[in-house]
């Protein structure tokens, strides 16, 4: 059972990476956005900002409680998902992890699982969000939540690894075709956002603090 489930999850992961790479390759067959205009600021600074400070919730113009709750829930969910992926990658050695490390991973995955479930409930309960959603939104979220539950089970008892592997397969196989693929497009979109922000000079002059330009 261990070998079969391990082989299945490896094939699923390879398939996921391959299809995601293929999708990215297809995107790169198109030209990049034109940027012939003379820059007013520094492109690199914008990109750096986009991947660091620009991700912080207080850097966003929205101030409502609803936004803050949703944004923080999203951060926790994604931290959990990435912890779950790390657990999957390191799973062959799970039994030899010190209890403290397992405890930290367990906490990360558990928080992600709770945030995922909360996201699922919110998506259904909030009329606007429900209106915005398509079936893929629910299916993707359910598959990730199931994956996290599997990670949690394996972290609690390493002998449950085959179960974790089997629960990971659907997510890995579906990811490249679902909204989960935003995990790779994120980097592309964020890069272009940062580049445009940097080029415009808005980072240096964004709030009008300095009288001299």
């Amino acid at each position: 059972m261990q070998e079969v489930s391990q082989a299945l999850v490896l094939v699923s992961a390879a398939f996921c990476v391959l299809v995601l790479a293929l999708r990215l390759w297809r995107a790169f067959q198109h030209p990049g956005p034109a940027d012939l205009a003379r820059a007013r600021g520094v492109v690199g600074r914008g990109v750096l900002y986009a991947f660091t400070v620009g991700m912080l919730p207080w850097e966003k113009p929205a101030r409502s409680l609803k936004f803050w709750v949703a944004y923080i829930r999203g951060i926790l969910f994604h931290l959990g998902a990435f912890t779950g992926l790390a657990v999957l990658a390191l799973s062959p050695w799970l039994g030899s992890f010190p209890p403290a490390v397992r405890g930290v991973l367990l906490a990360g995955v558990a928080v992600g699982l709770v945030a995922g479930l909360a996201g699922l409930v919110t998506r259904w309960a909030d009329g606007e969000l429900r209106g915005l959603s398509v079936p893929d939104d629910y299916l993707s979220l359910v598959l990730v939540v199931v994956f996290l539950a599997g990670a949690l089970a394996a972290l609690g008892e390493p002998s449950r690894r085959p179960l974790f592997y089997l629960l990971s397969c659907p997510m890995l196989l579906y990811a490249p075709f679902s909204k989960i693929r935003h995990c790779v497009y994120f980097f592309l979109s964020r890069f272009y956002y940062g580049a445009a922000l940097g080029r415009s000079g808005l980072l240096e002059h964004g709030v009008g603090e300095r009288a001299e330009s």
């Binding site: 999708r23 909204k179 497009y185």
Partner: peptide
């Protein structure tokens, strides 16, 4: 066009 997660933020 690909990346949106329809989070509504």
């Amino acid at each position: 066009l690909e990346v949106c997660a329809r989070c509504g933020l």
